[in-house]
Design a protein around this nucleic acid. Structure first.
Length: 425
DNA sequence: TCTGGGGTCCTAGGACCC
DNA sequence: TCTGGGGTCCTAGGACCC
């Protein structure tokens, strides 16, 4: 039986989150910057129309932004994460099954919903808007790839009014023809360029290619995209989030770091953050990869980057152990005489906390009975009173390397003292 | 002139996604 | 002066083993 998958995608999500709490920005251009106020990562429709490019470095487009009266925000992930959860809760309340795909997208299985998928999608869209303030688009199709494609059509074609069901369309091929090859889910810039050179410019032309050729040139990933465009589902619907296989914490510094002690502070901070995420999925890590790099944009300056993987004797989620491992690796790859821009800590070899393998050489966790309750208490404090309420001394106190966020909006929904006030009368 | 063969595991790099 | 962060999957090739 053919299925109806819907892709619900929040429009210009970060910009819409900012606007949800500043109604006077409705109809005005809004842009949100990446960490460190580095580049533009979200734009309202008005900002797009003004010609603000996606990914543009802030210092390069600052004039353009000012000239057009664009309201500019540093990214506020506490706010976006919470708004995302609200949107997802609305979807879960009305849809039989929801797969959260990213912070601003979810797939829903609408097969057999009463009244038809499109009408259901319209109600969903209106409800999300009314309950969260976030505008969404809804695309419906028999496979995830086609739902994605339908979603893009819904978003770009005003007459769709935010919802489009490809399966119910009188001429679906016309929509495929309208979709540029590079806009097909799963076809990135590399493959798109190659395909265009062969005269394959849109989804319809791609769909007509021979499977053997596609598999040979684009591996099974490309083959799956091809088959999905033909209406054969290749990507399963996953109700719950799968455990991560790697966990990364990395951040560019607010100022270049030159000293080992500062680098070790940042390493500890990132290791602690990664460890928190690790415990969040009840896993332990078997190895820690640290890396560092100078700023490759600064031509003419000496460049250096390196990475080192540090295996752990026993897989663990204990922050002090992970900090020790990360710092020992960092000491080995750090070289004096460079301006470092960024470092990262990646946890890999993840396995569930229960049922992990134990080493014969190190004490099993049962012999360190206080580790887990301690970490649990730290996580509970930070969940309740905010990140870094309890932190590790190894992360330093002054943290001169911390990122810049000079235009951040309040954490309207996650911090009591930043909550919106509504004046009476 | 000759230089086995096949399996498994790991890693690095490439491509993609948001 | 200032250019994000966090993931997944696939493949090729080398190491290693018998």
């Amino acid at each position: 039986m053919p299925r109806d998958y819907a892709l619900i995608d929040c429009n210009n999500f970060y910009a819409s989150c900012e606007r949800a709490f500043r109604p006077e920005l409705e109809g005005r251009p809004v842009a949100v910057l990446s960490n460190n106020d580095g580049c533009v990562i979200a734009r309202s429709d008005e900002a797009k129309a003004a010609g603000v490019p996606m990914g543009a470095p802030y210092f390069k487009c600052r004039n353009l932004l000012e000239r057009n009266g664009v309201a500019v925000f540093s990214s506020n992930y506490a706010l976006y994460g919470d708004m995302s959860a609200r949107v997802m809760r609305v979807l879960s309340r009305f849809c039989p099954s929801v797969e959260i795909y990213s912070i601003d997208e979810a797939f829903c299985d609408l097969t057999g919903v009463p009244g038809g998928a499109e009408a259901f999608g319209r109600r969903l869209r209106a409800t999300v808007r009314a309950w969260t303030g976030i505008p969404v688009s809804v695309g419906i199709g028999p496979t995830k790839t086609l739902a994605k494609l339908a979603n893009r059509f819904a978003k770009k074609q005003p007459r769709c009014r935010g919802v489009f069901d490809l399966g119910a369309s009188p001429d679906p091929d016309r929509v495929l023809k309208w979709t540029a090859i590079g806009d097909v889910w799963g076809i990135g810039p590399r493959h798109a360029e190659r395909l265009r050179k062969l005269g394959v410019d849109d989804a319809l032309a791609f769909r007509g290619l021979k499977r053997d050729w596609v598999q040979k040139k684009m591996t099974v990933a490309g083959l799956h995209t091809l088959l999905e465009l033909r209406g054969l589902p290749c990507f399963d619907f996953a109700a719950g989030p799968a455990d991560k296989k790697t966990i990364v914490s990395s951040r560019s510094f607010g100022h270049p770091v030159t000293r080992l002690d500062h680098m070790l502070e940042a390493t500890a901070q990132y290791a602690a953050r990664a460890a928190e995420k690790l415990r969040g999925q009840r896993s332990v890590a078997a190895s820690v990869l640290v890396s560092l790099q100078t700023n490759a944009f600064r031509l003419g300056r000496p460049q250096y980057s390196n990475a080192l993987s540090v295996p752990l004797a026993v897989a663990t989620a204990h922050t002090p152990a992970l900090i020790r491992a990360a710092q020992s690796g960092m000491k080995r790859i750090f070289r004096e005489g460079y301006d470092y821009k960024k470092c990262a800590v990646m946890l890999s070899g993840l396995e569930p906390e229960r049922g992990r393998r134990l080493s014969l050489l190190a004490l099993p966790p049962a012999h360190r009975p206080n580790d887990r309750p301690l970490m649990h208490a730290v996580d509970a404090c930070n969940a309740r009173w905010g990140r870094d309420t309890v932190a590790f001394a190894a992360s330093g106190v002054r943290q001169g390397w911390r990122m810049k966020r000079e235009m951040m909006s309040p954490r309207y929904t996650t911090a009591w003292d930043e909550i919106l006030r509504v004046k009476a009368g």
